[in-house]
Design a protein around this nucleic acid. Structure first.
Lengths: 198, 198
DNA sequence: GCAATACTTGAGTGATTGTTCAAGTATTGC
DNA sequence: GCAATACTTGAACAATCACTCAAGTATTGC
């Protein structure tokens, strides 16, 4: 009996995410959002409570896209360490190919959000914790395969790799140079034991 | 003949910097700035052109504080690698002790500023380039002292260390845990060759 | 066709944004 | 004490902010 919704909620969410990604939360106005989503303020607020809630929904949408690509990358039939290496190579490729140089919405959000905002900080932290767990799992596989010294702590090394993602993301902002970023990862993988096996 | 300025320009700048540091550029209003500096809008704009120029001045003030501490740290009479290590330990101590968990104004700025804003991005990038050069110099010393494999590229390793700073800064936002951050640096220094000598 | 339903519209809310500027005031050289 | 100088003040600016809501409109079950 009711009039059906005309627009695609998910498509609007993706468009909103794209704006937040490019500009950050504070620099994005509701006007920007209505323009990007082609939604009137009324529809926007009817669908997503308010600007903040829309932002949080955008964070979730962003991460679910990431999660997918991480899974396929870390479950290929390459060797464990090679899979991790491929992940970082892919990350660099993505960064370098982005003409807007937007970086990662999650990392940007971590630094834009004040520490008092526990909800957003917790949410994003948990997302990276999930990736960290995946990394640790692959590192354990590497130990089982004899690729990684069994005396090393996989969880600790997973944290190093996560910090490596952060490092890449910020470094890229200062100097978007693919070979140089690859070299940073070469040297980071040195920490996993021995020279890179490229 | 003219009436002398009543307030201390540098003190006002430091107060403004503190607000930008805590809240970021966009989240800081001119009202926040007048409140923090105890300056009326007129005096603020008379002294520092506008909000943006004040922000850039704050970035410079922030970095000159950093530069000083880096210099003393990297010129102690410890061994070269130990000096680098001490720098990172100091960095972690600072981060953990900050009750506001503000992070680094420069890193925060890098991620908040869109890539189109070349002026601010260039300025901050150059600041880190200066630190990178210092790191490379110390790493060369380490090679001369037999602490670092002479076949490694000091400049490349300096970039890894800079990325390490970035990594720490972001990781700290997700989990402010000192021992864990130290462990990340332990593992990062693994990449410089061999286990940490702590 | 007729209620009933609820999505869409966009003008309008008050608050806040960054910025300006004329009026007021304090100091100095003479 | 008197100009001359210029710093200080804060009200006021237009623009924008996030957000609301009554009016308009399209669809459905009957």
């Amino acid at each position: 009996m009711p009039r059906p919704i005309e627009f695609d909620r998910d498509e609007a969410l993706l468009r909103a995410m794209s704006v937040f990604w490019r500009q950050g939360y504070h620099a994005t106005s509701v006007k920007d959002l209505t323009a990007a989503t082609h939604l009137q303020p009324g529809s926007l607020y009817g669908t997503f409570q308010n600007k903040r809630a829309l932002f949080i929904a955008a964070l979730d949408a962003y991460f679910s896209g990431i999660r997918e690509r991480i899974q396929t990358c870390l479950h290929s039939d390459d060797s464990p360490l090679q899979r991790l290496r491929t992940f970082f190579d892919m990350l660099i490729e993505e960064m370098v190919c982005d003409p807007d140089n937007k970086g990662c919405l999650l990392v940007n959000t971590l630094l834009e959000t004040p520490a008092e905002d526990t909800e957003i900080n917790r949410r994003v932290s948990e997302m990276f914790a999930e990736v960290e767990t995946e990394f640790a799992r692959v590192l354990q596989e590497a130990q089982a395969a004899g690729e990684l010294d069994p005396s090393r702590d996989p969880q600790a090394l997973a944290r190093l790799l996560i910090a490596g993602i952060y490092g890449l993301r910020v470094y890229h902002k200062t100097r978007p140079d693919a070979p140089m970023l690859h070299e940073i990862i070469d040297n980071l993988f040195f920490a996993l034991g021995g020279p890179s096996r490229h």
